[in-house]
């Protein structure tokens, strides 16, 4: 019972992290493994690039 609860909570936490983009860098690295010939960005550089990209277009509405 407790195990199942912990599992469910962990799943919820993962969902929250994914929805908020908190795990974005981990996902970037995981995806990056597929292209080993390009060096991966540092966490900071990745975040900067992502923020810049996110706010270059229409991202918020009325």
């Amino acid at each position: 019972m407790a195990k199942r609860l912990i599992k469910a909570l962990r799943k919820l936490w993962q969902a929250i992290r994914q929805l908020s983009g908190d795990d974005g860098y981990e996902r970037y690295l995981a995806q990056h493994d597929a292209r080993p010939n390009v060096p991966a960005l540092s966490r900071k550089a990745w975040f900067a690039q992502q923020q810049h990209q996110k706010w270059s277009g229409i991202k918020r509405c009325c």
Partner: peptide
């Protein structure tokens, strides 16, 4: 390209899309 084009879980897309469209209007 791992940046703007990226297959994403549909609930995450839903969350982003809703957060973007729903403002004070």
């Amino acid at each position: 390209n791992g940046r703007d084009f990226m297959p994403t879980n549909r609930w995450v897309v839903f969350g982003h899309h809703f957060a973007a469209i729903a403002g004070p209007g």
